[in-house]
């Protein structure tokens, strides 16, 4: 049988994305969540137009395919993801390209070379630190430390309602907020 001629093929776009989350996400959970949020936002008819398909997904970065004229809708679907299996998550679109190779070379490979993003360290012995903002002293142990960003686990239960209000597990601070400016 002859293959489908190029003029009749669906024209696709490939979206490179990265994920920021509190814990590791598996490929299966990500696919389920994207399917769920697509049907919740657009319904069955709308989601069949997108033709979504997850290609690669490694180290919280990946490529997803959609049809060429629905890139804005796909962005909206990816933006409406709130959490995956109860883990707070944010999907950040790095860029859109016409080929898988273009998306990989432009957005997935270059970033790791240029910025030299250090590996996300999960510290075994929790290092403690204290910050003071607006006369509130927050004391906690460091869970994640990467790219000047720190996720802090609260020690005392005093400010636990702050976490409940914003529905996250950890307090997010930066290196520049710390009092003594020294870690490790």
């Amino acid at each position: 049988m002859k293959i489908l001629p190029p003029t009749l093929r669906e024209s696709n776009r490939y979206i490179a994305f990265s994920i920021q989350s509190e814990e590791q996400i598996t490929r299966r959970d990500l696919i389920n969540e994207i399917n769920y949020s697509t049907t919740a936002l657009l319904g069955d008819v709308g989601s069949c137009e997108l033709g979504l398909r997850l290609f690669s997904f490694e180290d919280l970065k990946g490529i997803i395919r959609c049809t060429a004229d629905t890139t804005w809708k796909t962005r909206a679907v990816l933006a409406s993801v709130y959490s995956i299996k109860g883990i707070r998550t944010r999907i950040k679109v790095l860029g859109i390209s016409g080929t898988v190779r273009g998306a990989t070379e432009k957005y997935l490979l270059t970033e790791s070379i240029n910025e030299a993003e250090p590996e996300r360290k999960i510290t075994q012995e929790s290092i403690e630190c204290t910050i003071a903002i607006n006369a509130i002293n927050i004391h906690g142990s460091i869970i994640n430390y990467y790219n000047n960003k720190i996720d802090l686990m609260l020690k005392d239960r005093q400010y636990i309602e702050i976490l409940d209000r914003s529905n996250t597990g950890y307090i997010g601070i930066t290196v520049f907020d710390l009092k003594d400016k020294e870690i490790d």
């Binding site: 509130i136 209000r165 996250t168 307090i171 997010g172 520049f176 907020d177």
Partner: peptide, 21 residues
Amino acid sequence: VHSLPDYADSPGRMVLEAKEM
């Protein structure tokens, strides 16, 4: 954008994340 006394992220963290975006 809300930050620490009310919600869970420090002002600096919010600025850093917004700058990356």
